[in-house]
């Protein structure tokens, strides 16, 4: 990549004024560094990934409303987590977290356990029980 080829596309980073450093070759063939404001293929990949997450969150929301899963799953997706990550944050085995995703089991969870989840998601127990929060 030549120095003048360093991409300056409009990226998702531009809003936050964030520039990346790239290594590129100058006219004399020597390596130097240059700032890049973004590159379209990257931006598309990132936007797709974010859209994917939003879809997962929406699906989870519908499943919670239909009483097919517990709000924990909704908040888990909202925080871009999977079962493994969530389990290590609450400090439980994965199978226990999976079990807590069942609405029936979720209803019977102790206040202490609910508080654990609420702390991880940085919400109150009340908000954990309802799902409108966090949009």
């Amino acid at each position: 990549m030549k120095e003048n080829e360093v991409p300056q596309d409009k990226g998702s980073l531009e809003s936050s004024n964030f520039k990346e450093l790239c290594y590129a070759v100058n006219d004399k063939g020597e390596y130097t560094t240059a700032s890049s404001s973004g590159w379209t293929p990257k931006t598309i990949a990132l936007n797709n990934a974010i859209q994917e997450i939003n879809e997962r969150v929406e699906e989870a929301k519908i499943r919670v409303i239909n009483n097919e899963t517990s709000p924990i799953e909704y908040y888990m997706e909202l925080h871009k987590m999977d079962i493994g990550i969530l389990a290590s944050y609450v400090g439980l085995w994965q199978w226990r977290v999976k079990r807590h995703l069942k609405p029936k089991v979720f209803c019977k969870l102790s206040q202490k356990m609910l508080q654990k989840y609420a702390d991880v998601f940085e919400i109150t127990i009340d908000q954990l029980n309802r799902i409108e929060h966090g949009n």
């Binding site: 293929p41 990257k42 598309i44 990949a45 990132l46 797709n48 994917e52």
Partner: peptide, 14 residues
């Protein structure tokens, strides 16, 4: 497939 491919590119460039 598209999601996977997007991931390959993100791992590569991002």
């Amino acid at each position: 497939a598209n999601h996977y491919l997007g991931q390959v590119v993100r791992m590569q460039e991002e």
